[in-house]
Design a protein around this nucleic acid. Structure first.
Lengths: 180, 180
DNA sequence: CCCAATGTAGACAGACCTGTCTGGTAATGT
DNA sequence: ACATTACCAGACAGGTCTGTCTACATTGGG
């Protein structure tokens, strides 16, 4: 046992921060559920804010890796990406987009966590831009903004509306937004 | 002075809750900035949760009243509503949709605040349904879901993207979502 | 005029928060 | 074998949180 304390902390933080919100979950609870000493926690993370950033960054890395495995190029890949998003957003236990929730919790745009959120959004948009360009879309720049919009909307709907609504409506919207 | 303590509390709560987040603003701060005694606060609101619900409900009422003053019917009114939304979301000081932010802060769907959010969403969607029906839209039910999606997306974008992006992208998306 | 409602000021309890610190244990690398 | 590193357990400080309480002032309706 032992060399995996950091991983246990990150896993527990991901579960609790995502499931219950960053502000409502304290360090004490994380170290208790991770089975870790307080000194160990502060050995690996200099503060709670640092842990929040690490949690978001790990989430970012995971999503980047997941989308990279999806097959296809251009529009086919685009549809695969949104199918995956819609699937996740309609799955049980979905509690909204981790980045959007974090942004809502940290009102100050200068907060480090907001930086990770901004990086994520920039990455997602550039992915959309690339896929639209591959497809020969007339205006990948404007198109990517529409698709970022759709991504956000699907996440919100998945969190607040009946499970299937987000998936079906996203499909319909994707069609309309792509064929212009 | 005096008979307006409740209003001062509500105004202060709206400003602070919206601007800095519900969890980060304490009762002590609200009563201090509202210039009100603690006993007075707990005389008007039985708990902080009750104040949060009152804040959201007031916001709901305000938006309902605002949309009611917009002229036109059918598609004209629809476009007026979204123009207003986009304008608000692109204005300085916009920190996201109060309902979406509150929903993100209260992870438990059974929290009273989440009830107000659900009521708001149901109202907005029924408004969309009505306007689409007036316009002779072939499927107001599905259409209203698309427009709720767009509303959410505009709010998120207004909070996280450069000011003008939300407005322009919303306009473009509205066109595509309405003409099928 | 008097009573009830509404207001102010602020102490207090009990809980929880983050972050620091001490002290001791187990695994690792050289 | 031994030093280093990672780890566990838990006390502690200093602050903030919600909600209750006492004690007193003001105001308006009957």
């Amino acid at each position: 046992m032992a060399r995996d304390a950091r991983r246990r902390i990150l896993d527990t933080a991901a579960r609790l921060f995502y499931g219950e919100g960053v502000h409502t979950v304290g360090i004490d609870r994380i170290i208790a559920e991770a089975g870790v000493a307080k000194a160990t926690f502060y050995h690996h993370f200099k503060s709670k804010d640092a842990l929040v950033c690490a949690y978001l960054t790990a989430h970012f890395d995971g999503q980047r890796a997941e989308f990279a495995t999806l097959p296809g190029t251009g529009r086919a890949k685009l549809e695969a990406v949104f199918a995956r998003i819609a699937e996740v957003c309609a799955s049980p236990g979905f509690r909204g987009c981790a980045f959007l929730n974090a942004a809502a919790e940290f009102a100050d745009p200068a907060h480090p966590a907001r930086g990770v959120v901004a990086e994520y959004r920039a990455w997602f948009r550039s992915l959309m831009r690339r896929l639209l360009a591959e497809e020969g879309h007339p205006d990948p720049e404007a198109g990517s903004r529409l698709l970022l919009l759709l991504r956000d909307a699907t996440a919100v709907s998945g969190a607040l509306d009946p499970p299937d609504q987000a998936r079906e409506t996203t499909e319909a919207a994707l069609d309309r937004l792509l064929t212009a």
